[in-house]
Simulated scan of single mutants.
Amino acid sequence: MPALLLAGPPAEPLTLAEAKAYLRVDHEAEDALIAALLTSARATVEALTRRVLIDQSWRIVRDAWPASGLIPAPVNPLRDLLAVKLIDAAGGETALPLSAFTLDVARLPGLIRVDRAAVPAPGRALAGIVLNITAGHGSSADHVPSPLVEAVRVVLAHFYEHRDVPGPGAAFPARLDALIAPFRVTRL
């Protein structure tokens, strides 16, 4: 069940000014580098925790409705279901009513319950179901748990300090694991 990113976050968990202050950089010569490292640091924390920090739009593609009627969200925390479409054999799309779906956003991973009696089977065998969702902690960094923001700082500093050092000497600091461990989403 692949998940495809439709729209990334509108901002990073840290501003460029906050990142530069944390790194103790007071010049503008490396602004582009720091901005790129900040994006990489956020993406790394997201990969390590299996959750996105700031709201993003994602597409879940399925071949068939699950027998259980439950679709675990591959991207968490699940916030909203935006649209569900069936794809027919010719590639045409049919929108399904959102009332046929119930979200459990309190659970990690989030669950999408499908009312199987209210939805038809997809019109093609492969990738016949498309669900567009929003996942994340909120629309801004204010909604991201502070340990995860600190984890982004730790990864950013690590990337900045070790940008020229490949291999085992560039392992993440041990405190990173302590920051992210309570926030890891387990796979079902």
Rank of each mutant, 00 (worst) to 15 (best):
A135C: 14
V165L: 15
A29F: 07
S57I: 15
D88K: 09
L5P: 05
R124I: 08
S146D: 14
I112V: 15
T102M: 10
T15Q: 00
L98K: 02
I112E: 04
H162Q: 11
K85W: 11
L96Q: 12
L179A: 02
V84R: 02
R62P: 00
P147R: 04
R175M: 08
E161P: 00
V149N: 04
P66K: 00
A135S: 10
R175V: 07
L176Q: 09
I34T: 05
T39Q: 13
A67G: 12
V61A: 07
R62N: 03
A181D: 15
A171P: 00
L53K: 10
R62M: 14
L37R: 06
G169P: 05
A67P: 03
L131R: 02
L37A: 03
R50T: 07
R116S: 12
P145I: 01
E18V: 05
P120A: 05
L103W: 08
L38S: 00
A43E: 13
L23W: 10
I112R: 07
A35R: 04
P9T: 03
L96H: 06
R107Q: 14
L78D: 09
P122I: 03
L38Q: 00
L131N: 05
A178S: 12
K20C: 04
T49V: 12
L6A: 11
P182I: 08
R79A: 12
L126Y: 06
A157D: 14
A174I: 01
R50K: 12
L38T: 01
E12T: 13
T15L: 02
D63T: 13
G167Q: 01
A73K: 00
L16C: 02
A83V: 10
L33N: 01
F101C: 04
A7N: 13
D63S: 14
E28Q: 10
P109T: 14
A41D: 00
L179F: 05
L4E: 03
L16G: 06
L96Y: 03
A117C: 06
P168T: 07
A125S: 12
R113I: 00
D80Y: 13
S140A: 09
H143G: 02
G8E: 08
S146M: 11
A121N: 06
V105T: 15
A100Q: 00
V149R: 08
A100K: 03
P166L: 10
D104W: 01
V61M: 04
Y22Q: 13
A43N: 07
A36M: 02
G136R: 09
P145H: 01
P66L: 03
I112H: 08
R59M: 14
L156D: 11
G167V: 06
E18R: 08
L96K: 02
L78M: 05
V75H: 07
L81R: 00
A17W: 01
A19I: 08
N132T: 14
K85V: 09
Y22F: 13
L96S: 04
R42E: 08
V149S: 01
A21W: 04
Q56F: 08
I54W: 01
L156V: 09
I112W: 07
V75S: 08
L38W: 04
P97A: 13
A170T: 03
V61F: 03
L38C: 03
D80K: 15
P122D: 03
